[in-house]
Structure formats: structure tokens, C-alpha cells
């Protein structure tokens, strides 16, 4: 499988008045052509920061402090703002949690799709408009010719997210980053939106980074899962393998807290403690140590990522 995105030792910090937040620490993963990898974890674990940092969208306080990230062989961490701007929208696209907020409220949706293809594919106004209609049809919006003239407020949340997908994939990017794309949508709409993303990935070979807090969604919609906790990827494996035999204590606790279609409330367990304060100067090597039931003295040794099984990577000295 051709690697589309290759991230190695990727670290990000934010400088704030109350100290430096070590938001990402040596994050590493790869996504191949046509593959969907899910990045899961609780809020504050660094999932979205990963996406924003990769695309050069960090705000002024944030900076990449180490590591490499290459998209189709192009190094993103050292790219100039202009080079990144050319990549964003053309080779890497992103969709967000609240599509209505991400769309321009005072322009018809067809024009918003046309803007992207005019800028990145250099189409004429007329060609861009017909391409926009074509894209609306591709994401399953009924009556696309008429709907191209609609404003975001005239569309449901699910429809808006389909428009966002249309904008994102109109230039046939190599990588789509979907940051909680269906949070806030009904389950029925979620299923339809995820189907559309899967269909487009299948047809165009687009790689997808699916950022979600919903393990069940990741279970159903990804080939691989990377679990994040406090800026570390703690475990990464093929989806089936990870769910069948999770090895990192955090992954196991996360699964034990997730409601399923069977089972009782009494069987669910919350994860004790909170995320550590990432401003601390003396962050322990394992950022889960204080919450971990299997904590050993060996856990004070520097964190190392190792393969515990073929294609099953873990950051833990005492896995289950």
C-alpha cells in the first residue's frame, strides 16, 4: 500500500501565560492510499491538535517542536505558509464537527464548492459551477441543480455536512481529515454521511484520518485505530485486532466505559482520575501512569513504542 501520510516523532507545544503545554509528544502514524485510520481518545487528548498542526492551522501560540510529517513525499513541517496553502484544499482537505459553522452563511452552497475548484483546479466560472453541481450529485444531494442555489440555513445538518464533504473532495485530495464529522448528527444521518465518505474513499483512493471520540463509530468505519491519551498515541493496531485484544490499560478502560448494545450500567467502569496537566515540567514518561491500575516502577523509564504483535504498536511497560 502506498503511504499517503507519514508522521514521525511529531511534537507540538503551546506557549500560554501559565506555562508551556506539551500538547503532542512524538506522535507517529502512517495512512496508506484508500485507508481509513481512526484517531480516538477523550477530549483534550490531542486528536484535533494533530489535524490542525499537520495542515499548518495552529494558532499563534502553537508550534511544531519536533518530528516530521510528509504528505505524498512533501514535508509539511518545514513547508512555507504559501506552500501549505497550496496543499490545503488541493492535496489535503478537512471537514469539521459543526458544518453549519464551517460554511459561509451568506453564500449559496454551489458557489462555495465552485470557489474551491476555481482556486485549486483553475476552472472557469462556468466549469466550476457545473463541477459544483456534479459534486452535489456525488454526495447524494437530491435535485442538485436547484440545491446549488440554496444557503446553508436552508439545509439540514446532514445536508450541510454533505456539502462540506463535496467541498473537501472536489479537488480529489490524497488525504481527507474528518474531525468528528458526525458528532451532533442523528444516527441515521451519521450512517448516510459515513457511507458517502467510504464510497468516495473507495472510488478515489483517498486516505482518511477519522478523528472521533466514538469507539463504536471507529470500530465500524476504520481499518486501523490509534488511541490517544494526553498527547501520546498509546496503542495502534488493526481495528479488529485492537478491539478483540486491547493491550494498553487506557484502551481497555476506554472500552470498559463505552455503552454497548448489550450489557448493564453496573458493568460499565469509569476511568479514575483526569488527564494530567500538560503544563507540568515534570510530566511522567507515561502520561497515564497516575490513572493506571497496572502501574509499576518500570513505568518511570522513558516511554518507548514497541510492536507487541505484528502491526500492533503499544506504549506501555506492563501491558495486559
Amino acid at each position: 500500500m502506498t503511504t499517503v501520510l507519514d508522521v514521525t516523532d511529531f511534537s507540538v507545544e503551546f506557549r500560554t501565560r501559565s506555562g508551556t503545554v506539551k500538547a503532542l509528544d512524538r506522535v507517529a502514524f502512517r495512512i496508506g492510499r484508500g485507508e481509513t485510520m481512526a484517531l480516538v481518545g477523550e477530549s483534550g487528548s490531542g486528536k484535533s491538535v494533530t489535524a490542525y498542526a499537520l495542515l499548518g492551522l495552529l494558532d499563534a501560540a502553537g508550534r511544531i517542536t519536533g518530528g516530521r510529517a510528509s504528505l505524498e513525499g512533501v514535508e509539511l513541517t518545514t513547508a512555507s505558509p504559501a506552500a501549505l496553502a497550496a496543499i490545503r484544499g488541493r492535496r489535503a482537505a478537512m471537514i469539521f464537527q459543526n458544518p453549519r459553522a464551517a460554511l459561509n452563511p451568506i453564500r449559496p452552497i454551489g458557489q462555495q464548492i465552485a470557489d474551491v475548484v476555481r482556486r485549486h483546479a483553475g476552472l472557469s466560472r462556468r466549469d466550476a459551477t457545473s463541477r459544483a453541481v456534479e459534486m452535489l450529485r456525488e454526495v447524494g444531494i437530491p435535485d442538485p441543480v436547484r440545491r446549488a442555489g440554496a444557503y446553508p440555513f436552508e439545509l439540514s445538518g446532514g445536508m450541510c455536512q454533505r456539502v462540506m464533504i463535496a467541498i473537501a473532495v472536489a479537488t480529489r485530495p490524497a488525504l481527507l481529515i474528518a474531525d468528528e464529522p458526525t458528532t451532533g448528527l442523528d444516527v441515521t444521518t451519521q450512517a448516510v454521511v459515513m457511507d458517502i465518505m467510504a464510497k468516495l474513499a473507495g472510488e478515489t483512493g483517498m486516505a482518511t484520518l477519522l478523528i472521533t471520540h466514538d469507539l463504536a463509530l471507529a470500530a465500524e468505519r476504520s481499518g486501523r485505530i490509534a488511541v490517544m491519551h494526553a498527547g501520546h498515541i498509546v496503542e495502534e493496531a488493526a481495528t479488529r485486532a485492537l478491539l478483540a485484544a486491547p493491550r494498553h490499560p487506557y484502551t481497555r478502560r476506554l472500552l470498559a466505559a463505552t455503552p454497548t448494545a448489550a450489557g448493564d450500567l453496573a458493568e460499565l467502569r469509569s476511568i479514575p482520575g483526569n488527564l494530567p496537566d500538560l503544563r507540568r515540567a515534570d510530566l511522567p514518561p507515561c502520561r497515564f501512569a497516575a490513572r493506571c491500575p497496572q502501574h509499576l516502577e518500570a513505568c518511570e523509564a522513558p516511554m518507548v513504542w514497541r510492536d507487541i504483535a505484528p502491526a500492533h504498536r503499544i506504549a506501555c511497560w506492563n501491558p495486559a
Partner: peptide, 13 residues
């Protein structure tokens, strides 16, 4: 339809 749309941890619909 509603029940079928809920993602499942076991990945089996």
C-alpha cells in the same frame, strides 16, 4: 432503521 444505524463496537451490524 434507527437501531440499525447505531454503530456497534463489535463492528457487526
Amino acid at each position: 432503521g434507527l437501531v440499525a444505524a447505531v454503530p456497534r463496537l463489535d463492528g457487526l451490524r
